[in-house]
Structure formats: C-alpha cells, structure tokens
C-alpha cells in the first residue's frame, strides 16, 4: 500500500481580504473545484495548516466555513513571516492548505444546554463559527451568551456583526475593553473580561462554556467560573502552542501527555488540570 505524504497540501485561492483591526485581517480562502475537501466534515475550533512556499507554514483556526462549497475564513493577526506575507500578497494569491486537524468545540455536548462564550481579542476568531452554528440550529441549543473583551474598542473583531449576533433569539452580547482611547465613543464596560461575570445570566447548571483568548485571561475565566459553581468538565478552552506538523509527530505542542494538535486544540479544563507548562 502506498502511503500518502501527509505534508502535501492543496493549492487554494485567497478570494477576499478584509481588515478587522489595524493588524488583524480575515482571509476568505477557497478550495479548488473538485477538491475532496468540499465534502469534508468541519467542526468549529479545528485548525488548518496554511503555507506559502519558501516562506513557511503555520496553523490557523477557522473563523467561518461554508458547508459544501469549500470556502472558509481565517482571521489572523500579522505577527510572523507567514502572516506578513499573506497580508502583503493580498487577494488573488495562492496558498497551500492542509487539514482540518484536531478536536473542535463540543457542539454535540452543548446540545440542549446554554452556551456561554468568553473571548479575548483575537480569541473570538475560532468562536465565531460556534455563534453561527448555534444561530443556524437555534432550537438545538439553550440560551447563548457572548462575553467579549479586547484591549480597546478598535481591537474588537467582527464589530459589524455584533448587531446580528444580538438579533439571535435568546442571545446576549456583553462587551468590555481594557481602555478607551480619546475620541472614541464607548458605552459598554471597561475592565478585563471577567468583570462581565457580574452581569451575565448563564447559570452553572446545564451549560457549556467555550473560551479562547490569551492563556492568562483564560486562567482568570476558569478561576472565576469555578468559583461560581461551573464544573471543570463543562469549561472548554482552546489553546495555542507552536505547531510544525499538525499531526502529532513534530512534538512542539506537547503539554505533558497531550498533543494540542491532536487531542486539542480545544480541551475541557478537567483534562488539563495538573498538567505542566500551562498558565491555566
């Protein structure tokens, strides 16, 4: 039997680039016609490996996925060689994509339960498909509450979608920022995202929490929610680690016995507790 080289990727086209914040862009990427990825099951929270030949490869999460059409969004901050090149080359460029990989958000476990989303900054990107999926299958889930914090109002992603999120039946959106620069109007909260806990309505029972953001933020989110009576098994976190293969071989993303790329990137807190090299 001939094994397939797992590093071979498909050439995809960047259809659209949309600026979210000064250094965060959403790239709409399309698989070629006839690609077998078109029918690929996709789960929010999974990730793909995107590369530009000669520059390198990096893991990105999805921020949207169009079922059956092979078109997806990825929303990323321009920080390294791959992301800078993506930004500079803009629309029309070709990129290599392989995946999706990993364990996504617990969309099945969350059915029939309230969903609480706690996001910080760029951490909203992998949670956006969760919101879309809940909206699309509204009757399968209970209440939806979104707590979203960022450094400043300018750093909030998907701001143009906030109104439609609020329009989802039985859904709330609470916003907060660390600080408000002069000249910007802001009539929401100021402070870290956990300050929104006082105002939220989601109860510990029959609910699933999904959080993504800086690990130090998630540490305080977990701490706060546990104190309110949420169970470790109901708190799901998406972790960021260095990844060079995405297929549990290169070893970079290991946390104790776990590979973030394969066993995560989404983990219930109950699986992470007591493991090394974690802030949470």
């Amino acid at each position: 039997m001939r094994l397939e080289n797992p590093y071979l990727a498909e050439e995809c086209a960047v259809k659209r680039v949309k600026r979210q914040t000064p250094d965060v862009y959403t790239y709409t990427i399309s698989y070629p016609r006839g690609s077998n990825r078109l029918r690929m099951p996709f789960r929010p929270g999974q990730f793909i490996m995107v590369s530009i030949p000669g520059i390198g490869e990096a893991p990105f999460s999805f921020s949207a996925w169009d079922d059956g059409k092979g078109i997806f969004d990825t929303t990323i901050r321009t920080v390294g060689n791959v992301t800078s090149a993506l930004m500079k080359r803009g629309e029309g460029q070709r990129v290599w994509v392989r995946g999706p990989y990993g364990r996504g958000w617990p969309m099945e476990e969350a059915k029939g339960k309230d969903v609480l989303i706690v996001a910080g900054g760029i951490g909203m990107a992998p949670l956006r498909p969760v919101i879309e999926l809940v909206a699309k299958n509204r009757r399968s889930y209970g209440g939806l509450e979104i707590l979203y914090g960022a450094r400043t109002p300018n750093d909030l992603l998907f701001a143009d979608e906030f109104e439609s999120w609020k329009g989802i039946p039985d859904a709330d959106l609470l916003l907060t920022v660390d600080s408000v620069p002069k000249g910007i109007e802001w009539d929401h909260g100021v402070g870290v995202v956990t300050t929104l806990f006082d105002r939220m309505r989601t109860e510990p029972n029959d609910s699933i929490v999904m959080t993504c953001g800086p690990e130090i933020m998630m540490k305080f989110v977990v701490k706060g929610l546990l104190a309110m009576g949420f169970q470790p098994k109901d708190l799901y976190l998406s972790l960021e680690r260095r990844m060079k293969c995405g297929i549990a071989q290169c070893g970079h993303c290991q946390i104790g016995p776990k590979f973030v790329c394969r066993d995560g990137p989404v983990f219930p807190y109950s699986e992470l507790r007591g493991l090394p090299d974690l802030l949470v």
Binding site: Y7, S51, P53, G54, G56, E57, K244, C245, C250, G251
Partner: peptide, 25 residues
C-alpha cells in the same frame, strides 16, 4: 522524535525545499 519543519529557498528564488530537521524540547 521531535522535528522542526522549514522552507529553504535556493538563491535565484525560483524554488526550494520544505524539510524536517531534528529539534529538541
């Protein structure tokens, strides 16, 4: 078993290789 994955361009930059190299935690 850990390894790094990198791209290496040849100089006139018309092509190159993607390669693995042993890495260490």
């Amino acid at each position: 078993f850990c390894f790094d994955v990198r791209d290496q361009l040849d100089f006139p930059m018309v092509g190159g290789v993607r390669y693995k190299e042993w890495d260490a935690c």
